[in-house]
Write a protein that binds this DNA or RNA. Structure first.
Lengths: 300, 300
DNA sequence: GTGATGCCATGCCACCAGCGAATGTCGAGC
DNA sequence: GCTCGACATTCGCTGGTGGCATGGCATCAC
Protein backbone atom coordinates (compact mmCIF):
# COMPACT_ATOMS: atom_id res chain seq x y z
CA UNK A 1 0.00 0.00 0.00
CA UNK A 2 1.18 3.46 -0.83
CA UNK A 3 1.43 5.67 2.21
CA UNK A 4 0.19 8.53 0.07
CA UNK A 5 -3.19 6.84 0.33
CA UNK A 6 -3.00 7.05 4.10
CA UNK A 7 -2.02 10.68 3.98
CA UNK A 8 -4.89 11.43 1.64
CA UNK A 9 -7.20 9.49 3.93
CA UNK A 10 -6.01 11.42 6.94
CA UNK A 11 -6.47 14.75 5.21
CA UNK A 12 -9.93 13.88 3.97
CA UNK A 13 -10.93 12.67 7.42
CA UNK A 14 -9.62 15.84 8.97
CA UNK A 15 -11.28 18.20 6.54
CA UNK A 16 -14.42 16.14 6.09
CA UNK A 17 -14.32 16.80 2.39
CA UNK A 18 -12.71 15.21 -0.61
CA UNK A 19 -12.68 18.45 -2.53
CA UNK A 20 -11.03 20.38 0.28
CA UNK A 21 -8.44 17.67 0.79
CA UNK A 22 -7.68 17.72 -2.92
CA UNK A 23 -7.09 21.45 -2.78
CA UNK A 24 -4.78 21.15 0.18
CA UNK A 25 -2.82 18.24 -1.28
CA UNK A 26 -2.53 19.80 -4.71
CA UNK A 27 -4.53 17.04 -6.34
CA UNK A 28 -7.64 17.21 -8.39
CA UNK A 29 -10.86 16.17 -6.77
CA UNK A 30 -11.15 13.15 -9.03
CA UNK A 31 -7.75 11.90 -8.00
CA UNK A 32 -8.58 12.04 -4.31
CA UNK A 33 -11.96 10.47 -4.92
CA UNK A 34 -10.33 7.53 -6.60
CA UNK A 35 -7.58 7.25 -4.02
CA UNK A 36 -10.20 6.89 -1.31
CA UNK A 37 -11.99 4.36 -3.48
CA UNK A 38 -8.72 2.45 -3.87
CA UNK A 39 -8.13 2.43 -0.15
CA UNK A 40 -11.66 1.23 0.46
CA UNK A 41 -11.22 -1.53 -2.07
CA UNK A 42 -7.97 -2.57 -0.45
CA UNK A 43 -9.57 -2.73 2.99
CA UNK A 44 -12.72 -4.29 1.66
CA UNK A 45 -14.97 -1.79 3.39
CA UNK A 46 -16.31 1.71 3.18
CA UNK A 47 -14.33 4.15 5.28
CA UNK A 48 -16.37 7.25 4.48
CA UNK A 49 -20.08 7.95 4.23
CA UNK A 50 -20.82 10.23 1.34
CA UNK A 51 -23.02 13.01 2.60
CA UNK A 52 -24.62 15.81 0.62
CA UNK A 53 -22.00 18.14 2.06
CA UNK A 54 -18.71 16.32 2.22
CA UNK A 55 -17.94 12.97 3.75
CA UNK A 56 -17.92 11.48 7.24
CA UNK A 57 -15.95 8.61 8.69
CA UNK A 58 -17.63 5.27 9.10
CA UNK A 59 -16.87 3.10 12.09
CA UNK A 60 -14.18 1.40 10.01
CA UNK A 61 -12.70 4.73 9.06
CA UNK A 62 -12.65 5.83 12.66
CA UNK A 63 -10.82 2.63 13.52
CA UNK A 64 -8.30 3.16 10.76
CA UNK A 65 -7.50 6.77 11.51
CA UNK A 66 -5.20 6.37 14.51
CA UNK A 67 -3.34 3.62 12.70
CA UNK A 68 -2.83 5.86 9.70
CA UNK A 69 -1.53 8.59 11.96
CA UNK A 70 0.85 6.22 13.66
CA UNK A 71 2.16 4.82 10.40
CA UNK A 72 2.76 8.23 8.88
CA UNK A 73 4.38 9.50 12.05
CA UNK A 74 6.66 6.53 12.17
CA UNK A 75 7.54 6.97 8.54
CA UNK A 76 8.48 10.56 9.20
CA UNK A 77 10.52 9.45 12.18
CA UNK A 78 12.34 6.95 10.00
CA UNK A 79 13.22 9.60 7.46
CA UNK A 80 14.38 11.88 10.22
CA UNK A 81 16.50 9.18 11.82
CA UNK A 82 18.25 8.37 8.57
CA UNK A 83 18.71 12.02 7.80
CA UNK A 84 20.04 12.76 11.27
CA UNK A 85 22.56 10.02 10.81
CA UNK A 86 23.56 11.56 7.54
CA UNK A 87 23.92 15.05 8.89
CA UNK A 88 25.61 13.82 12.07
CA UNK A 89 22.85 14.92 14.38
CA UNK A 90 22.78 11.35 15.63
CA UNK A 91 24.71 8.13 15.44
CA UNK A 92 27.99 6.92 16.83
CA UNK A 93 31.65 6.78 16.03
CA UNK A 94 33.67 3.87 17.34
CA UNK A 95 37.38 4.41 16.87
CA UNK A 96 39.98 1.77 17.44
CA UNK A 97 43.61 2.84 17.63
CA UNK A 98 47.04 1.48 18.51
CA UNK A 99 48.52 2.68 21.81
CA UNK A 100 50.89 5.37 20.57
CA UNK A 101 48.12 6.98 18.53
CA UNK A 102 45.99 7.17 21.65
CA UNK A 103 48.62 9.39 23.25
CA UNK A 104 47.70 12.50 21.34
CA UNK A 105 46.73 12.07 17.70
CA UNK A 106 43.41 10.31 18.11
CA UNK A 107 42.27 12.21 21.24
CA UNK A 108 42.81 15.53 19.50
CA UNK A 109 40.87 14.44 16.45
CA UNK A 110 38.09 12.98 18.59
CA UNK A 111 37.84 16.20 20.56
CA UNK A 112 37.52 18.19 17.36
CA UNK A 113 34.90 15.75 16.11
CA UNK A 114 32.88 15.95 19.27
CA UNK A 115 33.00 19.73 19.19
CA UNK A 116 31.65 19.71 15.66
CA UNK A 117 29.06 16.96 16.19
CA UNK A 118 28.16 16.82 19.85
CA UNK A 119 25.18 14.52 19.28
CA UNK A 120 27.25 11.68 17.91
CA UNK A 121 28.32 9.20 20.57
CA UNK A 122 32.05 8.63 20.34
CA UNK A 123 34.02 5.73 21.77
CA UNK A 124 37.63 4.63 21.60
CA UNK A 125 39.28 1.25 21.97
CA UNK A 126 43.02 0.77 22.27
CA UNK A 127 44.77 -2.29 20.95
CA UNK A 128 47.40 -3.67 18.66
CA UNK A 129 46.98 -3.40 14.94
CA UNK A 130 45.96 -7.01 14.20
CA UNK A 131 43.33 -6.90 16.91
CA UNK A 132 42.05 -3.55 15.70
CA UNK A 133 41.66 -4.82 12.18
CA UNK A 134 39.80 -7.82 13.46
CA UNK A 135 37.39 -5.58 15.34
CA UNK A 136 36.95 -3.51 12.25
CA UNK A 137 36.18 -6.58 10.18
CA UNK A 138 33.60 -7.87 12.65
CA UNK A 139 31.92 -4.48 12.81
CA UNK A 140 32.86 -3.78 16.41
CA UNK A 141 34.65 -0.62 15.32
CA UNK A 142 33.88 1.89 12.59
CA UNK A 143 37.43 3.01 11.89
CA UNK A 144 40.82 1.82 13.06
CA UNK A 145 43.97 3.87 13.33
CA UNK A 146 46.72 1.37 12.62
CA UNK A 147 50.42 1.29 11.92
CA UNK A 148 51.87 -0.60 9.01
CA UNK A 149 55.46 -1.67 8.72
CA UNK A 150 56.96 -3.51 5.78
CA UNK A 151 57.09 -6.56 8.03
CA UNK A 152 53.35 -6.55 8.58
CA UNK A 153 51.53 -5.26 5.52
CA UNK A 154 47.77 -4.81 5.71
CA UNK A 155 45.44 -6.74 3.45
CA UNK A 156 44.12 -3.97 1.23
CA UNK A 157 41.51 -6.25 -0.27
CA UNK A 158 39.81 -6.33 3.11
CA UNK A 159 40.56 -2.79 4.25
CA UNK A 160 40.56 0.63 2.69
CA UNK A 161 43.54 2.58 4.01
CA UNK A 162 43.65 6.33 4.39
CA UNK A 163 47.19 7.44 4.89
CA UNK A 164 47.59 9.79 7.84
CA UNK A 165 51.31 10.22 8.22
CA UNK A 166 54.65 8.45 8.02
CA UNK A 167 55.79 8.03 11.53
CA UNK A 168 59.09 9.52 12.54
CA UNK A 169 61.30 7.73 15.02
CA UNK A 170 63.32 10.00 17.28
CA UNK A 171 66.43 9.32 19.32
CA UNK A 172 66.15 10.76 22.78
CA UNK A 173 69.45 11.58 24.45
CA UNK A 174 70.31 13.55 27.55
CA UNK A 175 71.21 17.19 27.11
CA UNK A 176 74.78 16.29 28.10
CA UNK A 177 75.09 13.46 25.62
CA UNK A 178 77.92 13.75 23.17
CA UNK A 179 75.45 13.97 20.27
CA UNK A 180 73.02 16.33 22.01
CA UNK A 181 73.81 19.19 19.69
CA UNK A 182 73.29 17.20 16.52
CA UNK A 183 70.13 17.41 14.43
CA UNK A 184 70.56 14.09 12.77
CA UNK A 185 72.42 10.92 13.66
CA UNK A 186 73.08 7.58 12.05
CA UNK A 187 72.35 4.36 13.86
CA UNK A 188 75.95 3.29 13.48
CA UNK A 189 76.93 6.18 15.70
CA UNK A 190 74.86 4.69 18.54
CA UNK A 191 76.42 1.26 18.73
CA UNK A 192 78.32 2.15 21.83
CA UNK A 193 75.28 3.53 23.65
CA UNK A 194 73.08 1.77 26.12
CA UNK A 195 69.39 1.69 25.15
CA UNK A 196 66.45 2.24 27.43
CA UNK A 197 63.82 -0.15 26.14
CA UNK A 198 60.21 -0.62 27.03
CA UNK A 199 59.33 -3.70 28.97
CA UNK A 200 56.19 -4.24 26.99
CA UNK A 201 56.23 -6.82 24.30
CA UNK A 202 55.03 -4.17 21.89
CA UNK A 203 58.20 -2.21 22.42
CA UNK A 204 60.31 -5.24 21.70
CA UNK A 205 58.46 -5.57 18.46
CA UNK A 206 58.93 -1.92 17.75
CA UNK A 207 62.63 -1.98 18.30
CA UNK A 208 63.18 -5.12 16.33
CA UNK A 209 60.86 -4.15 13.55
CA UNK A 210 62.10 -0.63 13.30
CA UNK A 211 65.80 -1.14 13.13
CA UNK A 212 67.85 -2.58 10.32
CA UNK A 213 68.73 -6.20 10.74
CA UNK A 214 72.15 -6.67 12.14
CA UNK A 215 71.92 -3.75 14.48
CA UNK A 216 72.06 -5.13 18.01
CA UNK A 217 71.32 -2.47 20.55
CA UNK A 218 72.68 -2.82 24.03
CA UNK A 219 69.83 -2.79 26.51
CA UNK A 220 70.61 -2.13 30.15
CA UNK A 221 67.45 -0.48 31.35
CA UNK A 222 63.83 -1.44 30.86
CA UNK A 223 61.18 1.22 31.52
CA UNK A 224 57.50 0.66 31.19
CA UNK A 225 56.21 3.76 29.47
CA UNK A 226 57.42 6.78 27.57
CA UNK A 227 57.50 9.09 30.54
CA UNK A 228 59.69 6.77 32.59
CA UNK A 229 61.90 6.13 29.64
CA UNK A 230 62.44 9.84 29.09
CA UNK A 231 63.25 10.21 32.78
CA UNK A 232 66.02 7.64 32.46
CA UNK A 233 67.31 9.34 29.34
CA UNK A 234 67.27 12.76 30.99
CA UNK A 235 69.31 11.31 33.88
CA UNK A 236 71.90 10.18 31.40
CA UNK A 237 71.32 6.47 31.99
CA UNK A 238 71.01 5.75 28.31
CA UNK A 239 69.32 6.73 25.08
CA UNK A 240 65.96 5.68 23.71
CA UNK A 241 64.08 5.34 20.48
CA UNK A 242 60.77 7.15 20.74
CA UNK A 243 58.02 7.30 18.21
CA UNK A 244 57.39 10.96 17.49
CA UNK A 245 53.68 10.30 17.95
CA UNK A 246 54.28 9.53 21.61
CA UNK A 247 55.58 13.06 22.18
CA UNK A 248 52.67 15.23 23.13
CA UNK A 249 54.96 18.24 23.29
CA UNK A 250 58.68 18.97 23.16
CA UNK A 251 60.25 17.93 26.48
CA UNK A 252 62.64 20.38 28.11
CA UNK A 253 65.13 17.99 29.63
CA UNK A 254 66.10 15.73 26.76
CA UNK A 255 67.33 16.32 23.25
CA UNK A 256 65.45 14.71 20.38
CA UNK A 257 67.51 13.77 17.37
CA UNK A 258 66.26 12.73 14.01
CA UNK A 259 67.60 9.61 12.41
CA UNK A 260 69.28 9.84 9.07
CA UNK A 261 66.66 9.21 6.40
CA UNK A 262 68.33 5.99 5.29
CA UNK A 263 68.16 4.59 8.80
CA UNK A 264 64.63 5.62 9.59
CA UNK A 265 62.20 2.74 9.56
CA UNK A 266 59.11 3.16 7.45
CA UNK A 267 56.04 2.88 9.60
CA UNK A 268 53.00 4.28 7.92
CA UNK A 269 50.01 5.27 9.99
CA UNK A 270 46.65 4.72 8.35
CA UNK A 271 43.07 5.08 9.18
CA UNK A 272 41.52 1.81 8.04
CA UNK A 273 37.91 1.18 7.09
CA UNK A 274 36.20 -1.96 5.85
CA UNK A 275 36.72 -2.40 2.14
CA UNK A 276 33.55 -2.59 0.14
CA UNK A 277 31.46 -1.12 2.92
CA UNK A 278 30.35 2.47 2.79
CA UNK A 279 31.72 4.00 5.94
CA UNK A 280 29.20 5.45 8.38
CA UNK A 281 28.83 9.20 7.89
CA UNK A 282 30.66 9.84 11.14
CA UNK A 283 33.75 8.10 9.77
CA UNK A 284 33.71 10.13 6.60
CA UNK A 285 33.63 13.23 8.68
CA UNK A 286 36.24 11.98 11.12
CA UNK A 287 39.03 11.19 8.67
CA UNK A 288 39.83 14.78 7.65
CA UNK A 289 39.96 15.70 11.31
CA UNK A 290 42.66 13.09 11.87
CA UNK A 291 44.87 14.80 9.31
CA UNK A 292 44.08 18.26 10.60
CA UNK A 293 45.11 17.21 14.10
CA UNK A 294 48.68 16.49 13.00
CA UNK A 295 51.48 18.06 14.99
CA UNK A 296 54.43 19.14 12.80
CA UNK A 297 56.70 17.40 15.29
CA UNK A 298 55.33 14.00 14.37
CA UNK A 299 55.93 13.40 10.71
CA UNK A 300 58.56 13.97 8.16
CA UNK B 1 6.25 5.85 -0.29
CA UNK B 2 4.95 2.43 -1.09
CA UNK B 3 5.12 0.07 1.85
CA UNK B 4 6.03 -2.66 -0.60
CA UNK B 5 9.42 -0.99 -0.72
CA UNK B 6 9.76 -1.38 3.00
CA UNK B 7 8.75 -5.01 2.84
CA UNK B 8 11.27 -5.63 0.10
CA UNK B 9 13.87 -3.80 2.13
CA UNK B 10 13.12 -5.89 5.17
CA UNK B 11 13.30 -9.11 3.25
CA UNK B 12 16.57 -8.19 1.57
CA UNK B 13 18.05 -7.15 4.90
CA UNK B 14 16.95 -10.38 6.46
CA UNK B 15 18.23 -12.63 3.71
CA UNK B 16 21.28 -10.56 2.91
CA UNK B 17 20.66 -11.03 -0.76
CA UNK B 18 18.64 -9.29 -3.42
CA UNK B 19 18.30 -12.43 -5.46
CA UNK B 20 17.08 -14.51 -2.54
CA UNK B 21 14.60 -11.81 -1.55
CA UNK B 22 13.32 -11.69 -5.10
CA UNK B 23 12.73 -15.41 -5.06
CA UNK B 24 10.87 -15.27 -1.79
CA UNK B 25 8.74 -12.29 -2.81
CA UNK B 26 7.95 -13.70 -6.24
CA UNK B 27 9.73 -10.87 -8.02
CA UNK B 28 12.55 -10.95 -10.48
CA UNK B 29 15.96 -9.97 -9.24
CA UNK B 30 15.94 -6.86 -11.36
CA UNK B 31 12.72 -5.64 -9.85
CA UNK B 32 14.04 -5.96 -6.32
CA UNK B 33 17.31 -4.35 -7.32
CA UNK B 34 15.51 -1.32 -8.62
CA UNK B 35 13.14 -1.21 -5.66
CA UNK B 36 16.10 -0.98 -3.35
CA UNK B 37 17.58 1.69 -5.60
CA UNK B 38 14.30 3.60 -5.46
CA UNK B 39 14.25 3.43 -1.68
CA UNK B 40 17.84 4.61 -1.53
CA UNK B 41 17.07 7.50 -3.85
CA UNK B 42 14.09 8.44 -1.73
CA UNK B 43 16.16 8.45 1.45
CA UNK B 44 19.09 10.07 -0.24
CA UNK B 45 21.54 7.50 1.02
CA UNK B 46 22.84 4.00 0.46
CA UNK B 47 21.18 1.46 2.70
CA UNK B 48 23.06 -1.60 1.49
CA UNK B 49 26.67 -2.28 0.68
CA UNK B 50 27.00 -4.42 -2.38
CA UNK B 51 29.31 -7.27 -1.57
CA UNK B 52 30.59 -9.99 -3.87
CA UNK B 53 28.15 -12.38 -2.21
CA UNK B 54 24.99 -10.54 -1.49
CA UNK B 55 24.47 -7.26 0.27
CA UNK B 56 24.94 -5.94 3.79
CA UNK B 57 23.21 -3.15 5.64
CA UNK B 58 24.96 0.17 5.96
CA UNK B 59 24.65 2.21 9.12
CA UNK B 60 21.70 4.01 7.53
CA UNK B 61 20.10 0.70 6.66
CA UNK B 62 20.54 -0.56 10.17
CA UNK B 63 18.87 2.59 11.43
CA UNK B 64 15.98 2.19 9.03
CA UNK B 65 15.28 -1.46 9.71
CA UNK B 66 13.43 -1.19 13.04
CA UNK B 67 11.34 1.64 11.63
CA UNK B 68 10.42 -0.46 8.62
CA UNK B 69 9.43 -3.30 10.91
CA UNK B 70 7.31 -1.02 13.05
CA UNK B 71 5.57 0.52 10.06
CA UNK B 72 4.76 -2.80 8.47
CA UNK B 73 3.60 -4.24 11.77
CA UNK B 74 1.35 -1.29 12.35
CA UNK B 75 -0.02 -1.56 8.87
CA UNK B 76 -0.86 -5.17 9.48
CA UNK B 77 -2.47 -4.20 12.77
CA UNK B 78 -4.58 -1.60 10.98
CA UNK B 79 -5.80 -4.14 8.45
CA UNK B 80 -6.57 -6.57 11.23
CA UNK B 81 -8.43 -3.95 13.25
CA UNK B 82 -10.62 -3.00 10.32
CA UNK B 83 -11.18 -6.61 9.47
CA UNK B 84 -12.01 -7.53 13.05
CA UNK B 85 -14.56 -4.77 13.08
CA UNK B 86 -16.03 -6.18 9.93
CA UNK B 87 -16.18 -9.72 11.16
CA UNK B 88 -17.37 -8.64 14.61
CA UNK B 89 -14.30 -9.86 16.43
CA UNK B 90 -14.03 -6.35 17.83
CA UNK B 91 -15.93 -3.11 18.08
CA UNK B 92 -18.95 -1.99 20.01
CA UNK B 93 -22.71 -1.82 19.77
CA UNK B 94 -24.47 1.04 21.49
CA UNK B 95 -28.21 0.49 21.56
CA UNK B 96 -30.68 3.11 22.64
CA UNK B 97 -34.24 2.02 23.34
CA UNK B 98 -37.48 3.29 24.82
CA UNK B 99 -38.43 1.90 28.24
CA UNK B 100 -40.93 -0.73 27.26
CA UNK B 101 -38.54 -2.19 24.73
CA UNK B 102 -35.95 -2.53 27.46
CA UNK B 103 -38.30 -4.83 29.35
CA UNK B 104 -37.69 -7.83 27.18
CA UNK B 105 -37.31 -7.23 23.46
CA UNK B 106 -33.95 -5.48 23.44
CA UNK B 107 -32.37 -7.51 26.25
CA UNK B 108 -33.19 -10.73 24.47
CA UNK B 109 -31.73 -9.50 21.20
CA UNK B 110 -28.67 -8.14 22.97
CA UNK B 111 -28.12 -11.44 24.72
CA UNK B 112 -28.31 -13.28 21.42
CA UNK B 113 -25.91 -10.77 19.91
CA UNK B 114 -23.44 -11.13 22.70
CA UNK B 115 -23.58 -14.89 22.47
CA UNK B 116 -22.80 -14.70 18.77
CA UNK B 117 -20.13 -11.98 19.04
CA UNK B 118 -18.69 -12.02 22.54
CA UNK B 119 -15.83 -9.67 21.63
CA UNK B 120 -18.08 -6.79 20.73
CA UNK B 121 -18.73 -4.42 23.63
CA UNK B 122 -22.45 -3.85 24.00
CA UNK B 123 -24.15 -1.02 25.83
CA UNK B 124 -27.72 0.06 26.27
CA UNK B 125 -29.29 3.43 27.02
CA UNK B 126 -32.93 3.87 27.94
CA UNK B 127 -34.85 6.99 27.03
CA UNK B 128 -37.83 8.44 25.24
CA UNK B 129 -37.99 8.34 21.50
CA UNK B 130 -37.10 12.00 20.77
CA UNK B 131 -34.05 11.79 23.03
CA UNK B 132 -33.00 8.51 21.50
CA UNK B 133 -33.15 9.92 18.02
CA UNK B 134 -31.09 12.87 19.12
CA UNK B 135 -28.44 10.56 20.49
CA UNK B 136 -28.47 8.63 17.29
CA UNK B 137 -28.01 11.79 15.27
CA UNK B 138 -25.07 12.97 17.37
CA UNK B 139 -23.40 9.60 17.13
CA UNK B 140 -23.80 8.71 20.78
CA UNK B 141 -25.73 5.62 19.84
CA UNK B 142 -25.43 3.23 16.93
CA UNK B 143 -29.01 2.13 16.73
CA UNK B 144 -32.21 3.25 18.44
CA UNK B 145 -35.26 1.16 19.11
CA UNK B 146 -38.09 3.68 18.95
CA UNK B 147 -41.86 3.75 18.85
CA UNK B 148 -43.72 5.74 16.29
CA UNK B 149 -47.34 6.80 16.64
CA UNK B 150 -49.34 8.77 14.10
CA UNK B 151 -49.07 11.72 16.45
CA UNK B 152 -45.25 11.70 16.36
CA UNK B 153 -43.95 10.56 12.99
CA UNK B 154 -40.20 10.13 12.54
CA UNK B 155 -38.25 12.18 10.04
CA UNK B 156 -37.29 9.52 7.54
CA UNK B 157 -34.92 11.85 5.74
CA UNK B 158 -32.71 11.80 8.82
CA UNK B 159 -33.29 8.22 9.91
CA UNK B 160 -33.54 4.90 8.23
CA UNK B 161 -36.29 2.87 9.89
CA UNK B 162 -36.33 -0.89 10.12
CA UNK B 163 -39.77 -2.04 11.12
CA UNK B 164 -39.69 -4.51 13.97
CA UNK B 165 -43.30 -4.97 14.93
CA UNK B 166 -46.62 -3.24 15.37
CA UNK B 167 -47.22 -3.02 19.04
CA UNK B 168 -50.29 -4.60 20.52
CA UNK B 169 -52.04 -3.01 23.45
CA UNK B 170 -53.62 -5.46 25.89
CA UNK B 171 -56.30 -4.94 28.49
CA UNK B 172 -55.43 -6.56 31.77
CA UNK B 173 -58.35 -7.55 33.91
CA UNK B 174 -58.62 -9.73 36.99
CA UNK B 175 -59.56 -13.33 36.49
CA UNK B 176 -62.87 -12.59 38.14
CA UNK B 177 -63.66 -9.61 35.92
CA UNK B 178 -66.86 -9.80 33.97
CA UNK B 179 -64.93 -9.81 30.67
CA UNK B 180 -62.22 -12.23 31.81
CA UNK B 181 -63.42 -14.97 29.47
CA UNK B 182 -63.46 -12.79 26.40
CA UNK B 183 -60.74 -12.80 23.78
CA UNK B 184 -61.47 -9.38 22.42
CA UNK B 185 -63.15 -6.31 23.82
CA UNK B 186 -64.09 -2.87 22.56
CA UNK B 187 -63.09 0.27 24.42
CA UNK B 188 -66.69 1.29 24.72
CA UNK B 189 -67.27 -1.75 26.93
CA UNK B 190 -64.74 -0.40 29.43
CA UNK B 191 -66.29 2.99 30.08
CA UNK B 192 -67.61 1.88 33.44
CA UNK B 193 -64.30 0.47 34.63
CA UNK B 194 -61.71 2.12 36.79
CA UNK B 195 -58.23 2.31 35.22
CA UNK B 196 -54.94 1.66 36.93
CA UNK B 197 -52.62 4.20 35.37
CA UNK B 198 -48.90 4.67 35.64
CA UNK B 199 -47.74 7.64 37.59
CA UNK B 200 -44.99 8.38 35.15
CA UNK B 201 -45.54 11.10 32.66
CA UNK B 202 -44.73 8.63 29.94
CA UNK B 203 -47.74 6.60 30.85
CA UNK B 204 -49.98 9.62 30.66
CA UNK B 205 -48.67 10.15 27.20
CA UNK B 206 -49.21 6.52 26.36
CA UNK B 207 -52.77 6.49 27.52
CA UNK B 208 -53.65 9.72 25.83
CA UNK B 209 -51.81 8.96 22.64
CA UNK B 210 -53.08 5.42 22.44
CA UNK B 211 -56.73 5.88 22.91
CA UNK B 212 -59.26 7.43 20.61
CA UNK B 213 -60.04 11.00 21.39
CA UNK B 214 -63.20 11.31 23.35
CA UNK B 215 -62.55 8.29 25.45
CA UNK B 216 -62.06 9.48 29.05
CA UNK B 217 -60.94 6.67 31.29
CA UNK B 218 -61.71 6.83 34.94
CA UNK B 219 -58.44 6.68 36.91
CA UNK B 220 -58.56 5.77 40.59
CA UNK B 221 -55.22 4.10 41.11
CA UNK B 222 -51.79 5.17 40.06
CA UNK B 223 -49.03 2.54 40.09
CA UNK B 224 -45.46 3.18 39.13
CA UNK B 225 -44.51 0.18 37.06
CA UNK B 226 -46.02 -2.70 35.22
CA UNK B 227 -45.53 -5.18 38.01
CA UNK B 228 -47.34 -3.01 40.52
CA UNK B 229 -50.03 -2.26 38.07
CA UNK B 230 -50.64 -5.93 37.39
CA UNK B 231 -50.76 -6.53 41.11
CA UNK B 232 -53.60 -4.02 41.45
CA UNK B 233 -55.38 -5.55 38.53
CA UNK B 234 -55.03 -9.06 39.92
CA UNK B 235 -56.53 -7.84 43.20
CA UNK B 236 -59.51 -6.58 41.27
CA UNK B 237 -58.88 -2.92 41.99
CA UNK B 238 -59.28 -1.97 38.36
CA UNK B 239 -58.15 -2.73 34.84
CA UNK B 240 -55.10 -1.52 32.96
CA UNK B 241 -53.85 -0.97 29.46
CA UNK B 242 -50.55 -2.76 29.04
CA UNK B 243 -48.31 -2.71 26.03
CA UNK B 244 -47.79 -6.31 25.02
CA UNK B 245 -44.05 -5.61 24.88
CA UNK B 246 -44.03 -5.06 28.64
CA UNK B 247 -45.19 -8.61 29.24
CA UNK B 248 -42.14 -10.76 29.57
CA UNK B 249 -44.35 -13.81 29.90
CA UNK B 250 -48.01 -14.67 30.37
CA UNK B 251 -48.96 -13.85 33.98
CA UNK B 252 -50.99 -16.42 35.86
CA UNK B 253 -53.20 -14.16 37.95
CA UNK B 254 -54.67 -11.77 35.37
CA UNK B 255 -56.45 -12.17 32.08
CA UNK B 256 -55.13 -10.35 29.05
CA UNK B 257 -57.67 -9.30 26.47
CA UNK B 258 -57.03 -8.03 23.01
CA UNK B 259 -58.66 -4.85 21.87
CA UNK B 260 -60.87 -4.92 18.87
CA UNK B 261 -58.78 -4.10 15.82
CA UNK B 262 -60.63 -0.85 15.21
CA UNK B 263 -59.86 0.38 18.71
CA UNK B 264 -56.25 -0.66 18.80
CA UNK B 265 -53.85 2.25 18.50
CA UNK B 266 -51.20 1.96 15.84
CA UNK B 267 -47.80 2.21 17.40
CA UNK B 268 -45.05 0.93 15.17
CA UNK B 269 -41.77 -0.14 16.69
CA UNK B 270 -38.71 0.53 14.57
CA UNK B 271 -35.00 0.17 14.81
CA UNK B 272 -33.66 3.48 13.60
CA UNK B 273 -30.23 4.15 12.13
CA UNK B 274 -28.74 7.34 10.79
CA UNK B 275 -29.83 7.96 7.22
CA UNK B 276 -27.00 8.24 4.77
CA UNK B 277 -24.52 6.64 7.13
CA UNK B 278 -23.41 3.07 6.67
CA UNK B 279 -24.31 1.42 9.94
CA UNK B 280 -21.45 -0.12 11.90
CA UNK B 281 -21.18 -3.84 11.18
CA UNK B 282 -22.49 -4.63 14.64
CA UNK B 283 -25.73 -2.85 13.84
CA UNK B 284 -26.17 -4.73 10.59
CA UNK B 285 -25.78 -7.93 12.49
CA UNK B 286 -28.00 -6.80 15.37
CA UNK B 287 -31.11 -5.89 13.38
CA UNK B 288 -32.06 -9.43 12.33
CA UNK B 289 -31.63 -10.53 15.93
CA UNK B 290 -34.21 -7.96 17.01
CA UNK B 291 -36.77 -9.56 14.74
CA UNK B 292 -35.80 -13.08 15.72
CA UNK B 293 -36.29 -12.20 19.39
CA UNK B 294 -39.97 -11.46 18.89
CA UNK B 295 -42.40 -13.17 21.20
CA UNK B 296 -45.65 -14.16 19.47
CA UNK B 297 -47.47 -12.58 22.38
CA UNK B 298 -46.31 -9.11 21.40
CA UNK B 299 -47.51 -8.29 17.94
CA UNK B 300 -50.53 -8.79 15.84
C1' DG C 1 44.35 -19.53 -15.94
C1' DT C 2 40.23 -20.40 -17.66
C1' DG C 3 35.63 -21.40 -17.67
C1' DA C 4 31.53 -21.77 -14.68
C1' DT C 5 28.79 -19.78 -11.30
C1' DG C 6 26.48 -16.44 -8.40
C1' DC C 7 25.23 -11.82 -7.66
C1' DC C 8 23.91 -7.10 -8.71
C1' DA C 9 23.10 -3.24 -12.18
C1' DT C 10 21.10 -1.59 -16.35
C1' DG C 11 19.00 -0.90 -21.05
C1' DC C 12 14.91 -1.84 -23.35
C1' DC C 13 10.16 -2.79 -23.86
C1' DA C 14 5.38 -3.49 -22.62
C1' DC C 15 1.80 -2.72 -19.66
C1' DC C 16 -1.15 -0.64 -16.54
C1' DA C 17 -1.95 2.38 -12.75
C1' DG C 18 -2.90 6.94 -11.75
C1' DC C 19 -3.44 11.66 -13.09
C1' DG C 20 -6.09 15.65 -15.15
C1' DA C 21 -10.01 17.54 -17.63
C1' DA C 22 -14.60 17.19 -18.53
C1' DT C 23 -18.96 15.42 -17.54
C1' DG C 24 -22.62 13.11 -14.87
C1' DT C 25 -25.37 12.66 -10.64
C1' DC C 26 -27.47 13.83 -6.49
C1' DG C 27 -29.12 16.58 -2.75
C1' DA C 28 -29.65 21.12 -0.58
C1' DG C 29 -31.03 25.70 -0.39
C1' DC C 30 -33.09 29.78 -2.25
C1' DG D 1 -37.41 24.84 -10.45
C1' DC D 2 -32.89 26.49 -10.69
C1' DT D 3 -28.35 26.92 -9.14
C1' DC D 4 -24.70 25.46 -6.48
C1' DG D 5 -21.72 22.38 -4.13
C1' DA D 6 -19.87 17.89 -3.63
C1' DC D 7 -18.68 13.33 -5.11
C1' DA D 8 -18.46 9.71 -8.96
C1' DT D 9 -17.30 8.40 -13.50
C1' DT D 10 -15.44 8.41 -18.16
C1' DC D 11 -11.69 9.14 -21.33
C1' DG D 12 -7.17 9.90 -22.99
C1' DC D 13 -2.57 10.13 -21.82
C1' DT D 14 1.78 9.76 -19.43
C1' DG D 15 5.01 7.99 -16.25
C1' DG D 16 6.21 4.49 -13.32
C1' DT D 17 7.12 -0.43 -12.66
C1' DG D 18 8.07 -5.06 -13.69
C1' DG D 19 10.07 -8.67 -16.82
C1' DC D 20 13.62 -10.07 -19.99
C1' DA D 21 18.06 -10.06 -21.49
C1' DT D 22 22.59 -8.57 -20.91
C1' DG D 23 26.84 -6.97 -18.79
C1' DG D 24 30.27 -6.42 -15.09
C1' DC D 25 32.48 -8.27 -11.24
C1' DA D 26 34.20 -11.51 -7.90
C1' DT D 27 34.70 -16.16 -6.54
C1' DC D 28 35.38 -21.01 -7.14
C1' DA D 29 36.57 -25.45 -9.26
C1' DC D 30 39.51 -27.83 -12.07
Amino acid sequence: MDTVLLDVFRTVAHLGSITAAARRLQFTQSAVSRQIATLEAELGTRIFDRLPRGVALTEEGRTLLPHADAILDRLAAARRAVDDLHTLRAGRLRVAAFPTAVAALVPRALAAFRAAHPEVAVSLIEGLTPTLLERLATGEADVAVVSESPAGPIDTTRFDLHHILDERLLVAVSRTHRLARRRTVRLSELEADSFVAGSAHAEETLLRASLPTGFRPRIDIVAADWTGKLGCVAAGLGIALIPALAMRSKPADVALLRLHPDDEPTRRIHAAARAGHTPPPAVTSFLPLLKESLDPLWSR
